[in-house]
């Protein structure tokens, strides 16, 4: 197990190094951030002073050397735009993204599992066919356009929910959260729903397939034969047994949700790390982009590792060693 973790971390370090180097030099060739940052009416001396302050006057190799040296001191550079350490900046935005992803997952399960079970119990009913058609649509619909349409309906035509932003927040243990205020909840709902619809379609399919299979098992027949009420059979015996695949797949999907949060956060102006990434790419804020990349690679490796461990705990037939090629 330890050897497995070490090999995984080694791989992650390699991926981080390769991607960070590509993006570091790539952003350098795309453009000079100083052109976007300073007042165009400033004279040449002011421009040069600004470049010196950000270290951009030095050759790219020297800049890269500073960057690599900084990593070993836990310093991923300072944002050109915000003038704060890049890592600190990203970590300050991370709670907003995690809150969004968490509520999206919650919505996906709370709505997706019951709908999938309905479709699985009565596969030929019109309501089940409608649910499955909706889930196919949920897979195909472009996420960002779906967000625009949600804004159009809820914010522009009905005017019942705000179009973007995060609303009022409350500090819990020093971290601002939205879901504890009414205004924050109203701001959270649309972006969370937008992020949830794709996962919901996935959960519906998993829950339907699981229900159709479990409903035929002997223990379900036995539970019925004992005279238990249908709601108890479905709510306890069936539900428990379909949750394992749902939970594992959703665990794997957490990483994807963080990636797709980039799109949702941009549409709804939600101040998380995804929106920060897009703003930083547009402003050529290299330290933030590179720091985001390294942090995400790390998070992905950890998520995959936890899912692997979860697999082997839930299903003893899966041995970790067997997965290493």
């Amino acid at each position: 197990m330890l050897a497995y973790l070490i090999r995984r971390l080694g791989q992650a370090a390699l991926v981080m190094a390769v991607m960070a180097t590509i993006v570091f030099f790539g952003l350098y060739t795309v453009g000079n951030p100083i052109d976007l940052l300073i007042n165009p009416e400033d004279d040449l001396a002011a421009q040069e002073a600004a470049m010196r302050r950000l270290g951009l006057d030095q050759p790219i190799w020297v800049q890269f050397g500073h960057f690599v040296g900084g990593i070993f001191e836990g310093d991923l550079g300072t944002s050109f735009v915000h003038n704060r350490p890049a890592l600190e900046l990203i970590l300050s935005r991370l709670p907003a993204t995690l809150e969004l992803v968490f509520f999206a997952m919650l919505l996906a399960v709370l709505i997706g599992v019951p709908l999938g079970m309905i479709a699985g119990l009565r596969p030929d009913a019109p309501s089940s066919k409608a649910i499955m058609a909706a889930s196919i649509l949920g897979f195909s619909i472009p996420n960002f356009w779906q967000g625009l349409m949600l804004i159009m309906l809820f914010a522009v035509y009905w005017g019942i929910l705000p179009a973007g932003g995060r609303g009022d927040t409350v500090d819990v243990l020093g971290i601002p959260v939205s879901f504890l205020t009414w205004d924050g909840l109203k701001h959270l709902f649309l972006p969370a729903l937008n992020l949830a619809i794709f996962k919901m379609s996935l959960v519906i399919r998993l829950a339907r397939a699981g229900t159709a299979e479990v409903a035929l098992q002997d223990y379900v027949k036995y539970a019925r034969a004992r005279g238990l009420s249908p709601s108890r059979v479905i709510g306890v015996h069936v539900l428990k047994n379909i949750l394992i695949p749902v939970v594992t797949v959703l665990g794997l999907e957490t990483g994807n949700a963080i990636a797709f949060a980039v799109v949702t956060e941009t549409v709804f102006a939600w101040p998380g790390i995804g929106k920060l990434l897009i703003d930083s790419i547009n402003l050529l804020d290299r330290p933030v982009v590179v720091a985001y990349l390294m942090l995400t690679v790390f998070m992905f490796v950890m998520i995959n590792f936890l899912v692997d461990i979860g697999y082997s705990l839930l299903d003893p037939r899966v041995r970790i060693q067997a997965r290493g090629r």
């Binding site: 990636a259 797709f260 980039v262 790419i281 982009v289 995400t296």
Partner: peptide
Amino acid sequence: FPALLVALLLLAA
């Protein structure tokens, strides 16, 4: 890694 994220970072570069 999600395809969208990799493509996004590549295009940033």
